[in-house]
Write a protein that binds this DNA or RNA. Sequence first.
DNA 1: ACTTCGACCTGTTGGC
DNA 2: TGCCAACAGGTCGAAG
Length: 271
Amino acid sequence: MPELPEVETTRRGIAPYIEGERVCGVVVRQPRLRWPVPARLKAALCGQTIDTVRRRGKYLLLESAAGTVILHLGMSGSLHVVEAGTSAEKHDHVDIIFANGCCLRLRDPRRFGAVLWTTRAAETHKLLQGLGPEPLSDVFDTDYLFTASRARRVSIKAFIMDSKVVVGVGNIYASESLFMAGIHPQTAAGRIGRVRYERLVRAIRQVLGKAIEQGGTTLRDFTNSEGKPGYFQQQLQVYGRAGEACLSCNGRIRSLQLGQRNTFYCPQCQR
DNA sequence: ACTTCGACCTGTTGGC
DNA sequence: TGCCAACAGGTCGAAG
């Protein structure tokens, strides 16, 4: 479900309810997520105040003086703020309850998500330390991407979906960005020139930025923390449109498998 | 060091 | 209507 825009939409949705609020309870109904939810989470977190809710790539970081909760939504996770005491449904695995009466609830049917706890700077955590730059930051520019891609034989699509290269570009926005940049998804990353990387950087920024503005993409069931869907799917140019007409050239959108992921592109517009 | 691929889960969809 | 296979927005870590 969530790529960077959906995670950012979630962050913005939950922050006002929990920033500056004190945790007074933690309920773990299902500790078996991607990694076990640490048993010490409850003891560590109770009594702490969540100072800030940050995002790094697709990870959400709830920071307190004692440590940081690292959250990942995986493929099917979502966070909602409900009133403390609201009855839990089938896949509501973890609640963090606040003294102000709010309950931050993680739902994740496929359980690819994660809830972890670290007492050190979150950036140094194993899962975060190798991450590439934020796509919307200044560090992510043409030079960076061009240099990082030299001698790389992977497809450009797999390359931009690699979180060590750049974070937050998932399967939907990878296809969309490559369409906008006019680059065929199968092209080897190392064989793409500077000028085209300039276009690609711009496209990634634009696509992600626009998607955040629209509250993310809702294909099946993504809703923000208030239960509202995102609207970016109305702007999707190629994702999920195999067999349909390209909105730019009227040719047929095609799909292919790249790195075990479905990939959409227009063979006319993308070379 | 790079690349590919299996693995982790459940729910939904589409074909027969 | 029912059953079953295929597929889904992520990504780690092993193996080549």
